[in-house]
Amino acid sequence: MTEQEIYASLSSKFGDQVVEFIEEETLNPTVVVEASAIADICNYIKDTETLQFDSLMNLAGHDPDGESDLNVIYHLHSTELDHYITLKTFTPRDDGSVASVANIYRTADWHEREAYDLFGIKFSGHPDLKRILMEDDWEGFPLKKDYVPAEFYRGMRIEKVK
């Protein structure tokens, strides 16, 4: 299936919850969807005969500019039918949440923890949402563009010595 057809199939099934289809030269064709619907959509595209997206290649958090909503991006591949699609969803910078897909794609478990660790994106329904890279007592989410590094961590100076 082409990405256009996949988009058509999704929007006929999920209506308003599929927001738009972005096709640009430099990006993978991307379907933008509502955060609350992402788990249903993943279930659907995994189980539907004509889609069979059985592999979540990557899940990433993204902060576009330090002001607007945070994004979560899903790169999916069907090993059976050999087609690809990119899903993208968005959530408010602070207390928003995205439905977890960890029980649909096992890959998502650690990837969602990483997105939580570095961007503070909460995934509702995740079995064990805690930091994965930074220490548990770390404050803030360092890949957010408005993150300001602390001066010290456990008595160790972080900023370069001027």
Partner: peptide, 15 residues
């Protein structure tokens, strides 16, 4: 990581 390493110790001689 000298400039943007929010997670890196700038010199092990600090510890």
């Amino acid at each position: 990581y000298w400039q943007h390493g929010y997670h890196v110790l700038k010199g092990v001689d600090q510890i």
